[in-house]
Design a protein around this nucleic acid. Structure first.
Lengths: 175, 175
DNA sequence: ATGCTTGCAAAACGTTTGCACAGGG
DNA sequence: CCCTGTGCAAACGTTTTGCAAGCAT
């Protein structure tokens, strides 16, 4: 939602990255530039592997290690934000100039819906205060069914892919 | 907080597991029994490796694979809940008969503080309704500094271990 | 007796690191 | 020119899987 019509040009983002690198004595290299470009072409939420894929697809090869070393820089300078869903891999989203928001993840189709979270921020502060905790950030994730899936399949919770799985002889639920 | 004085005896939990297994045509075996016992001895939040460790310590050896195969069963039958913090490994907590709650994670000492979350649940519903989303569950995590750490170290965000790291020659921020 | 369960080892997975070479300031 | 950055491959820690043997029903 917020990632469409991003309020900043790619040039601005490039400049922000170069400034960040300069200020930290890190070099502006071809590999880092290409990684940033690939990242800017990706929409919404993505993982490291997709950045690699995007790079290979454009014929601009960058080593896996370099991508993994560059992503934290982009996070550190505010262009990306690391988001962790209920999976082992890290996901990233664009955060340059974007307001804070949280996510709803559909258990069936995997769709990720963003929502602005002023109320969540307020609630966080209230709760933190109550426990003498100094909040720096928060993460809130709702899981359930998106509108389409709740119509198609009002009860099922199983991920979409498992529908094709052939029934087992036993009564076991484990996949 | 809620894991202390759990409102159910270990017998009740055992029985719940056995019933779950029976109902699903899964066998009640020594390995699964031992895994459950180890899990019940662990307090608060733990990871798979700690279950293994607990088992070895008690001389009741169970294969790593078996533990990894049993934990999802315990989650599925409601005895455990999988919780993912900002790390790659999964963590688990006891959920049998416990009310919903969320977590605050201290960035410095790693302490995890639980808080009851009726307000969070309410807010979830309100937000979901607004987006025509059918919520099934939520996850909220505040990160920041716990009371002790915010006194010791009012500004630092770096994890505790990095304090011992020797300063590098360059101006770079990366570890 | 049958076939689910086990433990081991090996694979898979995402991520990190060591190293010799390339290339930017 | 120096020192950082790169790419490769190998290491890493967690989790999963293949398989022959074990054991609960």
């Amino acid at each position: 939602m917020t990632s469409l019509n991003r309020p900043h040009t790619t040039d601005e983002v490039h400049e922000a990255f170069r400034k960040y690198l300069r200020d930290h004595g890190i070099k502006w290299t071809k590999a880092r530039q290409r990684t940033l470009e690939a990242v800017l072409q990706l929409k919404e939420h993505f993982e490291a592997e997709q950045v690699l894929h995007q790079l290979r697809q454009g014929g601009r090869n960058v080593g896996k290690a370099t991508v993994y070393r560059t992503l934290p820089l982009l996070v550190d300078c505010g262009i990306l934000k690391q988001v962790r869903f209920d999976v082992k891999q890290a996901h990233y989203e664009h955060s340059y100039g974007e307001g804070p928001h949280d996510h709803m993840v559909c258990r069936r189709c995997g769709r990720i819906i963003e929502f602005a979270s002023e109320e969540v921020v307020e609630l966080s502060s209230r709760i933190a205060q109550r426990h003498h905790f100094h909040v720096v950030g928060h993460r809130m994730q709702l899981s359930g069914l998106c509108w389409e899936c709740s119509i198609v399949c009002p009860v099922a919770m199983a991920p979409l892919e498992s529908e094709a799985a052939p029934p087992k002889k036993s009564k076991r639920k484990r996949k």
